[in-house]
Design a protein around this nucleic acid. Structure first.
Length: 447
DNA sequence: ATAATTTGACCTTC
DNA sequence: GAAGGTCAAATTAT
């Protein structure tokens, strides 16, 4: 079990510095979805594991000797680079409507944004960033991939990052619809779906590959109950439930590559099936919160025959567990629990993992409501309300707050010190709160 | 003790 | 009847 004993406030410091910029540039659409540049920022920059001390000297504008010892870029340089990325992203957002039918242009713009973030990341000496977001060479005729010699999937990782934010949203914003069209274009025309798997590259019959099983098969199989009373009262077969979405997700390049891709939600595996003509079995998952919230979200995961480093993930049904309650409104602010604070902060990233954290906090503080109401806006509001508090270093302990356009109703104050205490002193369970904030990148190299 | 996974049996659809 | 999807007991992990 890994445990980060002393989570470094590096990312928080970065957010301190960036907050005014974020508040100005961060765009929240009408239905409270954070747009592309913030997501990219979180994925590329916030994953930085540790603060380069010299850069932090630049961050604080201290007139000490640390800067003199450092000949590389300062934090201000990094921030300028980030600001440039924000500017490009904002331009892209403004142009989405007009440029939606020009995938080449859009891809290039996304590429440019990613490059700007990567430049900042490189200034921080974070070499892995280039690996994660290395933009594709964009052949004019195939802007979304299919280049010779490369894998046919995931050639536009900048867009792939956005996929989880489009899942399960029946009422998409125009911006989401733009992104959806982009992603659709990125996967369907050029990426080979797993439909033509019969005999394609397989050597004879199907070869089963045991998925992430650490136990050895028992030599003697116990006889199972032959006749069971099956109850299929309210079963909705996956093929009949609407809201289906299929996507290609690359395997984790680090650690156990047999693990299914982590989309941030918590799933429980309920079945595995050998599929005719496929080398790899198909795994069936349902939402962990099915019993508690009646969440009917399901997914099936299968490796591609022709690209074992790619999973085909089909989502069915929406996560009703995300819209079940308004738990955050009941949080005893400002004496927020660690879990709930982490939930609110993580929701700032609008990541599904943050959603999972929200659910964890729900389990802690309240029972499910009979009248589900959208909690997303609340979570976003809490997140944004937190940001200026964290920024408010001008007066320690101050609790400035910001009314987020589109977020109606109450304002909640979260003093930064409480937040920091909760974040950095909470570590009683397996994962730190920082994991909830920046969940996408782990630096544990398990060999 | 509880939660999650495995896996053969069972059910539904085609 | 075959194949895909799901159930649930057994098993394993936490």
């Amino acid at each position: 079990m890994k445990h980060r004993s002393c989570p470094c406030p590096w990312s928080l410091l970065l957010l301190h510095k960036l907050t005014p910029l974020c508040l100005r540039q961060l765009t929240i659409t009408a239905d409270k979805h954070i747009t592309v540049h913030w997501i990219l920022f979180m994925h590329v920059l916030a994953a930085h594991p540790a603060p380069p001390l010299a850069l932090l000297g630049g961050l604080d504008h201290r007139d000490d000797n640390t800067k003199e010892l450092f000949v590389g870029p300062t934090m201000d340089d990094v921030l300028s680079q980030i600001e440039e990325a924000f500017r490009l992203a904002e331009e892209l957002r403004a142009e989405l409507g007009a440029a939606q039918n020009n995938p080449v242009y859009l891809a290039e713009r996304c590429h440019g944004i990613a490059q700007a973030y990567l430049a900042a990341s490189r200034m921080l000496g974070y070499p892995h960033g280039s690996d994660d977001l290395s933009p594709p060479a964009l052949p004019p005729q195939h802007p979304f991939g299919g280049g010779s010699g490369s894998t046919s999937h995931g050639n536009l990782p900048q867009l792939e990052l956005l996929r989880p934010f489009l899942s399960g949203a029946p009422s998409s914003s125009p911006f989401q619809q733009h992104l959806g069209r982009l992603l659709e274009a990125s996967s369907s025309p050029f990426n080979t779906p797993a439909t033509d798997t019969f005999g394609a590259g397989t050597s004879g019959g199907p070869v089963r590959r045991q998925a992430s099983s650490s136990r050895s098969s028992p030599p003697v199989v116990q006889p199972r109950q032959q006749h069971r009373t099956r109850r299929y009262a309210v079963v909705v077969p996956m093929r009949e439930s609407g809201e289906r979405m299929t996507m290609m997700v690359p395997v984790q390049r680090t650690g156990n590559t047999d693990l299914p891709p982590d989309d941030g939600y918590t799933w429980r595996k309920y079945g595995q099936k050998d599929i005719l003509g496929s080398r790899y079995p198909r795994s069936y998952y349902r939402c962990t919160h099915k019993n508690y919230y009646g969440c009917e979200a399901k997914k099936k995961v299968q490796r591609l025959d022709d690209d074992p480093f790619m999973y085909e993930v089909t989502y069915c049904g929406n996560h009703t567990c995300l819209t079940s309650t308004t738990p955050l409104l009941t949080l005893p602010a400002p004496t927020t629990t660690a879990a709930s604070t982490a939930a609110a902060v993580s929701m700032l990233t609008n990541s599904p993992t943050g959603s999972a954290a929200i659910l964890a906090s729900q389990d802690l503080v309240m029972a499910p409501s009979e009248h589900p109401t959208p909690a997303l806006s609340t979570a976003i509001q809490l997140g944004i309300s937190w940001m200026p508090s964290a920024l408010a270093g001008t007066g320690e302990g101050s609790s400035a707050q910001v009314n987020v356009p589109g977020a109606s109703g109450r304002d909640t104050e979260y003093p930064v010190m409480d937040l920091a205490d909760a974040m950095f002193n909470s570590g009683s369970s397996g994962g730190s709160s920082m994991d909830a904030i920046f969940p996408a990148h782990h630096h544990d190299q398990r060999d």
